[in-house]
Design a binder for these strands. Structure first.
Length: 303
DNA sequence: TCCATTTGACCCAC
DNA sequence: GTGGGTCAAATGGA
């Protein structure tokens, strides 16, 4: 048992180191983006972005190994039915047997993320929308555009506040080889901070995925807001500019200007474990910061 | 024609 | 019985 504690402490320390490194790099990048003139510093921004990605990937990988250690140790101890993979956060996953026949089961292969934008850099296809009891806003259901490739990634998006804040619940990681969407060049070039987007343009990612219909996602919530509370996006300059950048280009513009790509890992095993950040890699900087802060609050009491 | 969204219906868990 | 998640036909845009 003492050895278990030592192992866990060691993993905890490594995890925290990686996450802190990622956080520091993110802060550094934020400063850099604030100070840099357009076209300058793009290389270092890329390097930093990759550094951040690497740190989070490593961190998640470590967290995964920690879970594996815990599972192994706990099953050895046999506490009586304690299954880490099924005693997660209380979120539910629906497994389909036949049409309309589902079994809900708890799963840990899901995670919640809050963000001021609904866009997360991945290509999603909406397959449903429901009004949720006691909720002002509808919940939207999305699955990966590449479902045909067998990708089981899903997400639910629900607006939780009048200020643009969306709660996104992800289920399963992307198994498709291409989860990215494309952004119009000018959005990234205008002002990465102001547009709330990060450009990860790089030579390693040369696929040509379809863009997610971000404007429709925005319009959808805007329509709801218009009915209920007016025009909420005026409250947030950051998000307004972000969305204006996208919507202003129109959907055709989005398809025509495809040069900046947002790399989302998913091809190798290590990155497979980093589904959370592969999906979040294009999120707003504020969102990233928020996530890092949340990660900093991880409760290691269990260990 | 293809693809994404909308929306009512279906079905299950609670 | 109700609420939530999914399906799939209808619809619309490119």
């Amino acid at each position: 048992m003492r050895k278990l504690n030592q192992n866990l402490r060691s993993i905890e320390r490594r995890l925290m180191e990686e996450l802190l490194a990622g956080r520091n790099s993110a802060i550094e990048l934020q400063t850099l983006l604030h100070n840099s003139v357009k076209d300058e510093g793009s290389t270092s921004s890329e390097e930093l972005a990759m550094k951040i990605l690497r740190s989070f990937t490593n961190g998640i990988s470590i967290a995964s190994s920690c879970t594996a250690v815990l599972s192994a140790q706990l099953s050895a101890v046999d506490c009586g039915g304690g299954d880490l993979t099924s005693s997660g956060e209380g979120t539910k996953k629906v497994v389909k047997d036949k049409r309309g026949c589902y079994k809900r089961k708890r799963t840990s292969d899901s995670w919640i993320k809050e963000s001021p934008t609904v866009e997360d850099g991945c290509a999603w296809r909406k397959y449903g929308q429901k009004h949720i009891l006691h909720s002002k806003y509808p919940r939207c259901y999305y699955r990966c555009t590449h479902k045909s490739q067998g990708c089981k990634a899903k997400k639910q998006v629900q607006k939780v506040k009048e200020d643009p804040l969306y709660q996104m619940t992800y289920f399963s990681h992307h198994t498709c080889t291409d989860t990215r969407i494309m952004l119009p060049q000018h959005i990234v070039e205008l002002d990465p901070i102001e547009s709330n987007l990060l450009s990860f343009q790089g030579s390693n990612y040369n696929h040509s995925p379809k863009p997610a219909n971000i404007s429709l996602m925005k319009q959808e919530f805007e329509a709801v807001d218009t009915q209920i509370v007016g025009f909420p996006y005026a409250k947030s300059s950051v998000n307004t500019s972000s969305w204006n950048g996208i919507i202003g280009s129109g959907s055709s513009g989005c398809k025509q200007v495809l040069s900046p790509t947002i790399p989302v890992p998913g091809d190798d095993l290590e990155e497979e474990a980093s589904g959370l950040y592969s999906c979040a890699s294009m999120n707003s900087f504020h969102g990233l910061e928020m996530e890092v802060d949340q990660l900093g609050d991880i409760d290691f009491e269990l260990w």
